[in-house]
């Protein structure tokens, strides 16, 4: 079983929130993405896709609250890191949505891990009281 932590992050003067952050590896680089059970599909930026050779497929629409915008579909592999290598879990062909660069924004979208290809292949249990969450591969 993999165990990860919540990060305490400031969202305003003296106001904080707690975000579940996993430890993953993509092409040798570690990342600490948010794990979001309310997000249907993993979301990455076009810059991220370009950096790691993730191919942009067909276009589709991503709806966030009231606004929808055009994104590309893609797939990629993630290694979820454990304390020791033998605990690692590799998930392949995880569907993702690639958010294109927009001229008016110079900031890349974050990496957010969603349900498809992750929650359906793992049992993920959040325990904010302990500041931790666990992830266990479901064997099909």
């Amino acid at each position: 079983m993999l165990t990860y932590k919540f990060a305490r992050e400031e969202i305003g003067k003296g106001r904080y929130t707690y975000r579940p952050k996993a430890l993953i590896e993509i092409e040798g680089n570690q990342f600490f993405p948010i794990v979001d059970s309310g997000c249907d599909t993993t979301v990455i930026s076009e810059g991220f896709a370009d950096a790691f050779g993730i191919k942009k497929g067909e276009k589709t629409e991503l709806k966030a609250f009231r606004e929808g915008f055009e994104v590309y579909q893609g797939k990629f592999n993630i290694r979820f890191l454990g304390k020791e290598q033998r605990l690692d879990e590799v998930l392949t062909d995880i569907p993702c949505l690639i958010v294109p660069k927009e001229k008016e924004y110079d900031e890349d979208a974050d990496l957010v891990l969603g349900i498809a290809g992750i929650f359906d292949k793992s049992k993920i249990s959040f325990n904010l009281n302990k500041g931790k969450f666990t992830m266990q591969r479901i064997l099909n």
Binding site: I11, G12, N29, F31, P33
Partner: peptide, 15 residues
């Protein structure tokens, strides 16, 4: 060297 890379959220709530 392969660094750890992460995005630091702005000081706001996210959806």
């Amino acid at each position: 060297k392969k660094p750890a890379i992460t995005k630091v959220e702005g000081m706001h709530k996210i959806l």
